[in-house]
């Protein structure tokens, strides 16, 4: 099939970017979206032009490296990661806009590549259980109800791609933050640091310049792992409780 692409090109953070048109004539519907970009890049390289820079690694939908806004939607028309989106989701002759994540807290590095190091700093602010190597009791010492373990797992499947931020009209990273609060907050191992974790992570979230959450729900609609919106309610509950206990 024939595809018309309009791709955001930006040489570096200092230079203004713009949309550039490209045409591909021989796209297979079994190609992944990124393989389609590979084909574009091979043809650009051969003609001496610089290929389009984009982040990608595992191409299995789990590392969270890839992610672009496709026709205005984070990760495109299917609920999945960009690498798992296939060209069968588009029609012959379609025009496709490809842009980087849009958020002040994810500055563009080049073309479609953005800087998401703010996510790592949110985790640094408390997104862990302090369990130094070698200190652990036997794994069966503390049974965890299956229901809690399953719900913790559901939240823990977050891949840190940033689609929630790109989708949010406020540019909030609350779904990302709430996923970690929920994962660890549901497990007995996460209890001792529960209050300090939520306060620390939310403070860091705000310090990074992410917007506030107004429960619009675009984040969960765009999330390739289906992290539910009620994780944010859980975060709010934990935050209020922690503040009330004066843990701030």
């Amino acid at each position: 099939m024939k595809i018309n692409l309009r791709v955001w090109r930006q040489k570096n953070p200092e230079i203004d970017g713009k949309m550039v048109d490209y045409q591909l004539d021989d796209v297979s519907e079994d190609m992944s979206f990124l393989e389609m970009l590979d084909v574009l890049n091979e043809s650009l390289s051969v003609s001496g032009e610089e290929p389009v820079a984009f982040d990608h690694d595992c191409r299995e939908g789990i590392c969270g490296s890839c992610g672009v806004v496709i026709n205005g939607i984070a990760h495109g028309p299917e609920v999945t990661t960009t690498c798992q989106l296939h060209m069968r989701s588009f029609a012959d002759g379609d025009t496709i806009d490809v842009e980087p994540w849009r958020s002040g807290s994810f500055p563009v590095v080049k073309d479609l590549v953005v800087d998401r190091s703010s996510f790592d700093r949110i985790i640094q602010a408390g997104g862990y259980v302090s369990a130094p190597t070698g200190t652990a009791p036997d794994a069966h010492a503390t049974p965890v109800p299956k229901k809690d373990a399953d719900h913790a797992f559901d939240a823990a499947t977050c891949i840190g791609c940033g689609a929630c931020v790109a989708a949010c009209p406020n540019g909030s990273a609350m779904l990302f933050t709430a996923a970690k609060i929920t994962h660890l907050g549901l497990l007995p191992q996460g209890q001792p640091e529960r209050d300090s974790r939520v306060i620390g992570m939310v403070d860091q979230h705000d310090a990074e310049g992410f917007g506030g959450c107004t429960q619009i729900g675009e984040c969960t609609a765009a999330c390739p792992k289906g992290i539910p919106l009620h994780t944010i309610s859980r975060l709010n509950k934990d935050l209020l409780g922690a503040l009330a206990r004066g843990e701030g």
Partner: peptide
């Protein structure tokens, strides 16, 4: 043991 202590959500049975 170490991973469970870190909060790795391994699959569990109904007894926990």
């Amino acid at each position: 043991d170490q991973c469970v202590a870190q909060g790795v959500p391994f699959a569990r049975e109904y007894g926990g």
